[in-house]
Design a protein around this nucleic acid. Sequence first.
DNA 1: GTTCATGATGAGAACGGTCTCTCGCTCCAT
DNA 2: ATGGAGCGAGAGACCGTTCTCATCATGAAC
Lengths: 358, 358
Amino acid sequence: MSEQLGPRPAARQAGAGRAQRVTMADVAAKAGVSRTLVSLILRDQPGAGAATRDRVLRAADELGYRPDSAAQMLARGRSRTLGVMLDLDQPFHAEMVKAVYPIAERLGYDVLLSAVAPGRDERRALGALLGHRCEALVLLGSDADARLLASLAESAPTVVVGRKAGAPGVDSVRTAETKGVRQAVDHLVELGHRRIVHIDGGKGPGSSDRRSAYRAAMRRRGLAEEVRVIPGAHDEDAGIAAGTLLLGEESPPTAVLAANDRCALGLMHALRGGRVEVPGEVSVVGYDDSHLSHLSHINLTTVRQDTESIAEQAVRCAVERLEHAALPGRDVALDPKLIVRATTAPPRRNLLIEASTN
Amino acid sequence: MSEQLGPRPAARQAGAGRAQRVTMADVAAKAGVSRTLVSLILRDQPGAGAATRDRVLRAADELGYRPDSAAQMLARGRSRTLGVMLDLDQPFHAEMVKAVYPIAERLGYDVLLSAVAPGRDERRALGALLGHRCEALVLLGSDADARLLASLAESAPTVVVGRKAGAPGVDSVRTAETKGVRQAVDHLVELGHRRIVHIDGGKGPGSSDRRSAYRAAMRRRGLAEEVRVIPGAHDEDAGIAAGTLLLGEESPPTAVLAANDRCALGLMHALRGGRVEVPGEVSVVGYDDSHLSHLSHINLTTVRQDTESIAEQAVRCAVERLEHAALPGRDVALDPKLIVRATTAPPRRNLLIEASTN
DNA sequence: GTTCATGATGAGAACGGTCTCTCGCTCCAT
DNA sequence: ATGGAGCGAGAGACCGTTCTCATCATGAAC
């Protein structure tokens, strides 16, 4: 242990050698005014003379003053901080976060990130956010059950992105899966495809919606008997597995609607490995328009979720609920947009079969 | 109790409708002890009777008490929080963060994430971390110049991951590029390759080291006249460009050492698109061992940076500097390991030429 | 010349914790 | 008895802000 001479020697010595944090008091002293006034001026509030204002601002700048958000939070009773929980492995989450930053900033909120990781489940990730006094939570692709969500909502406004919340008092923002899927199916049908299968996303967020939307869209086009769902997931391996499965079939589909872009990529890889051309022999549609799909060598036709708007709505929901307490739980569904690139084309009859029996 | 005619009604009403935050005072009241004791017990310090301890813990649990880290920071003078700056688009960063979490936790540190994004440069990302009172900073793949690093280091211990820091008082942790590259080259040479090119990472972190390491390794194997570096970058497009270039050549290399996995992927895609088999006609080695390379359909031979150890060292550096103030700047270089998978094999003479003129 | 808004400034109490100190007790050697 | 140790518990200062309220000039209005 440390010898105890002065008050809290440990704390002092921890930062030893390092410049002490510059506080408002230092600025006040340097400018020759009171702390109160410094606070006022730094927060850009009226009530200080122009000359004083200048002097204080200059002093703050020279000292390299940086407000201590811990103290601010404590004093304000509000942190003006939004917590975002995400999965670092999901490119879509990355896109969302990028979109959330500027929006939150515009509304005067700070953003804190907390990732789920092996050994760090949602509960912990969220606990960290709450501990850091986030006033509202945005959950990207959460698996949380209704009970957890409900209990969260008791301590902070909670918005779930990408799926229905299923808990009272919790907002959700997501893509209108029905429309996205329908656009994709319509596109394929108009190209001349009939045998269109769907690789689903298993129990991932939004996938049950997409599944039923696919069925509905097919029925709507009179293709009820062609409906076929292959169980999958939101990663490359699922796509590979499905691709391998299809390669072995006698009369495989001419088009595939994948669970998401990663899944589509896996699928395409498997198909091309089996010498099946995309889109020559099989058309592939992804879902997400993640940065992967833009890449020139991939050039994936995909359904773009409007990240920008989703982020905007999510932040807005959180903030509104923060300000007007108990609103009813909202469920915002945004229109997605089909981005046609190079992986879809009219079907070429029988080529697939030929190729796969090479 | 505070039934008094409200000081700060604004603050109170901001959280209107929402349950008030449970504080230590509430727990203390419920357990019939003082705040001090509650604090003691919750921090797991000696000095409280077993019975009291139980009573307090139960009370805290029942009330759903959650320590307020803002207040803790303020009171402690220390935040015990590590700030990590990252780029959400880099899979390697994701791996790092996943590794950092448990290590930091073991050392009793909290982790805050701040991402760079369009419209949010390193300066801002770091400002956010500092504002939230991070005691130390870990920068993943930073572009920051020496001046910025030096000024950062004045306010908090700073560790740069993936490149040399180049600023005094700033630690760096990275892979011993020389060894990784040498292993890769040796592996290829032992398989029988001589014509081995390197696609470099442009001005990305670590790439100049890899470039010279490649030259050295080639010379060491007596292949000085085979040295060839193709300018590239750390993404798929660079790989494609290089691949396209090579496809057009008369006597292309039999093996390629890519800047990183993403680059390798692009390269492979381009090659396969040109009907060139990997590894049959060209062997490809990546760098990073990101989750992409594990995928069964990719199965990339790659140089694994030991994420685990890098994270450990980075956190350790930060913490040690935190505790022992002004140590000299360290530069830890960790041994990488070549992971041989399915994209490397002995060369087949002339096949590449045949294939590419098909 | 006294009274009053008005605008600039300062004093001091929160906020929710941590930490040092002191206090009252019991236990045991003198 | 007497005087410490040793331990459980509480008092109160403090961390760096924000916010309310009081104070103090200053000049316009009466």
